[in-house]
Design a binder for these strands. Sequence first.
DNA 1: TCTCTCTGGATCGTTTTTGCACCACCGATG
DNA 2: CATCGGTGGTGCAAAAACGATCCAGAGAGA
Lengths: 298, 298
Amino acid sequence: MIDWDDVRYFLAAARGGSVRAAAKRLGVNHATVLRRIAQLEARLGAQMFEKLPSGYRLTAAGEEVLEFANQMEATSHQLETRVFGRDQSIRGLLRVTLPPFLATHLLMPDIADFARLHPDIEMEIVSTGEVVNLTNREADVAIRLVSDRKTLPLNLHGLKGPDLRAGVYMSRDRLAALRAGAPDPIRPIVTGGQAVPDWIDEGEFRAAGVPFRTPGADAQIAAARQGIGMTKLPCFVGDADHLLVRVPGIDLKSTATIWLLTQGETRKTKRVRLFTEFVSRRLAAYAPLLAGLSLSRD
Amino acid sequence: MIDWDDVRYFLAAARGGSVRAAAKRLGVNHATVLRRIAQLEARLGAQMFEKLPSGYRLTAAGEEVLEFANQMEATSHQLETRVFGRDQSIRGLLRVTLPPFLATHLLMPDIADFARLHPDIEMEIVSTGEVVNLTNREADVAIRLVSDRKTLPLNLHGLKGPDLRAGVYMSRDRLAALRAGAPDPIRPIVTGGQAVPDWIDEGEFRAAGVPFRTPGADAQIAAARQGIGMTKLPCFVGDADHLLVRVPGIDLKSTATIWLLTQGETRKTKRVRLFTEFVSRRLAAYAPLLAGLSLSRD
DNA sequence: TCTCTCTGGATCGTTTTTGCACCACCGATG
DNA sequence: CATCGGTGGTGCAAAAACGATCCAGAGAGA
């Protein structure tokens, strides 16, 4: 009989492409992955990988095994979510994922309030740039921005929040200087790789010159503050920054709707319901701010 | 992340009904099962079993987990059969299951011939009374008796063998005594719990009295040899025994057909093909014997 | 070409897991 | 009432798994 956990190691190696990458994902030493895979291959009596100096590549047999390994993983995740769904105690872990800019500029104080209100809930905020998979139970609640034309995944249950609108902002001082007749060019600030936006031709003062490309929302804000140019920001971010003002003549853009997403059994959990209801109320209160109707958060 | 192998221990405990029974099935110490299940429950944060003095009983949560655990097991078995199906080498393990009386009275010499012919094939004969599950890959080849009106499982591939017929036998000496006019009653010998058979009224000499019930084919043969009464046996068993003769006036019964069954991917294997072809040839040679047309094996 | 970083693999202490021997308990049975 | 076979649970020593480390080799880039 094979050790079922070996399949988990196999899966990590197949995805990581190397023993060391798999070890990193699994949080173990690479020698362990080496041994577990050797053990699995011995018990199955077949080579699952070509052992190249550049890494592990799946053999034909390995490709077939991968299919079933994926299936086992899916079942394992379902198993986990099912028992988690039965958990009706307050005490326990609650993992939330949300876009970084929502965390840093808007919801972190509210999440802190929630944590203070429920000290028995162990919270974990997963706010990396990557979209985490709710189905695989990498998180229990996801706060997502969903473009209005896109549809939600069918297996997720959504609680609709307020709309989020964005504006184009630039430095307040720079705008004053422009009004006074300063000739310096105003450059569009965009994230790397993004096409030149269409709003450069709309405003009272036109952006010109090559775009200023920088990754990360915070870097864009900093660049705008320094007067490099103008950039598109969510209203609640731009309006709250007293060093920035909306560029006159450019309308607000309706970008997306905030959704609170939960998955399958997990939303029956008391912790999840408490959190989604709490955040939902707070978001509703922020609705004017998010829509860009109030020019300051104060 | 849970240890997938813990699910295997959970499954054994859920099926065995107790930690010790699970340990026996898994071939490990019962303390190990105890600890693995405790670990799984800790990681999932839920009780899967009620720990009663009489054993472990599944909780509601455990029942739900069981469903997915079964699914994981099925996937694991599929994974094993898939890689096994790719194995085209002679050397390796080949597990065969067949009814005990076929093994002891007919095929064991042939299986021994096969093993001698292919010393690289490690053979394992699973000839307990229980029907082993081919789908779960507890065996690679099954030699089964299939009643003509029953249908084969769809996922199995069958190679049809000769028909097997049975007759009613009694002690040769006893028959001679009867012909000489001995008055002792002849009792029908049947397996425990079986109804009184219909052939007691057919023969030249009628069976009478309460049935003699004994489990096991070998015990029935011994009882018949001792002259207790008459019993129904496969022809190849009864005809080969010089102490027994067919009861005059009772026709042969057509009971079932011998099938060589293989499953899914495993039949692509060289070992499996070699074995099924070999046994198929031998069975064909035995066809008259099995049909009861030759009165002795010699 | 030299370095730097990636790869798999081997070795060696150490940690974790496992098996064994117990214990207490419960129920059936002689 | 004592016994016997079954249950779960618990220390302790042996065994197995693990992590840290080192090594050789392969590429990439300076």
